[in-house]
């Protein structure tokens, strides 16, 4: 017991080392939240382009670009993508590492989310599109008011999973000089030469975050389902 208190004191209290954890957690959260939003935005657009092409054979060029995007992003490691952004593309130093991480993880997540959304859009009965169009709604309006809201419900659990993966994936942000949660723990380790304590603390925080997020997604899912009990 005494030993534990001692090592906590050494790793967290001394020299205000807990601030590495707090600051790191803050960056991890910022990156995850904004990368998630960017990922949903990109994913939805790519999914819409691909579905529209599948249904109508329009948007041929855009569809080819989207396919290329998905193939490249899903076929290369996210660390490499981040490093390309950091060392090759944003070489001028007025873009912060956090910003680069948001863009990198957002683009990466978008490719996976696109396929999730696409499966959701395809799962909606074609009669819904026909009903919308026959009422005079445009293709986009039918998508917006009829198809996407229903598809969103279908994909929510998978989408939730995707974001839990993203929370954990941001732990490689240290590669591009971002001081995230993982890096924060790492700095403490390098100061105190105690590997166990900071790593366990960091692991515990990740576990806590993913559990909270899982619970939140579950609750949201139940709320959305309320509409259509009694199938």
């Amino acid at each position: 017991m005494e030993q534990i208190i001692k090592s906590l004191q050494l790793n967290l209290i001394k020299d205000n080392r807990y601030m590495y954890i707090i600051d790191g957690l803050k960056n991890t959260m910022i990156i995850t939240i904004f990368a998630t939003l960017l990922g949903i935005f990109l994913g939805l657009i790519v999914a819409l382009v691909r579905t529209t092409y599948d249904n109508t054979k329009k948007l041929k060029v855009l569809n080819a670009i989207c396919n290329l995007y998905i193939t490249v992003i899903r076929g290369t490691p996210v660390v490499i993508q981040l490093m390309i952004l950091f060392f090759c593309i944003f070489t001028s130093r007025n873009v912060s590492g956090v910003m680069i991480a948001i863009i990198g993880f957002g683009i990466n997540s978008g490719a996976y989310v696109a396929e999730v959304f696409r499966s959701g859009l395809m799962s909606i009965d074609n009669g819904q599109m026909e009903a919308g169009r026959s009422l005079g709604l445009s293709y986009l309006d039918t998508m917006k008011f009829i198809i996407i809201p229903q598809a969103f419900k279908v994909v929510l659990p998978t989408l939730g999973n995707e974001f839990i993966v993203l929370i954990k994936e941001t732990s490689v942000a240290g590669y591009v000089a971002v001081q995230d949660l993982t890096k924060g723990g790492d700095i403490i380790r390098s100061r105190t030469y105690d590997a166990w304590t900071p790593l366990l603390i960091v692991a515990g925080i990740y576990l806590f975050l993913t559990c909270v997020f899982s619970a939140f997604v579950k609750k949201l899912e139940i709320n959305l389902r309320k509409n259509e009990r009694k199938d």
Binding site: D125, G127, Q128, E130, A131, G132, S134, L135, G136, L137, D141, F145, I146, P149, Q150, K153, N227, E228
Partner: peptide, 25 residues
């Protein structure tokens, strides 16, 4: 147009099913 399988919008109430197109179109 009226379909064999109704094709009502399951995520909208009856009232919303009816008012969506008049409001948007």
């Amino acid at each position: 147009m009226v379909f064999q399988h109704f094709n009502l919008f399951p995520h909208l109430t009856i009232l919303e099913n009816m008012t969506l197109a008049p409001m948007k179109v």
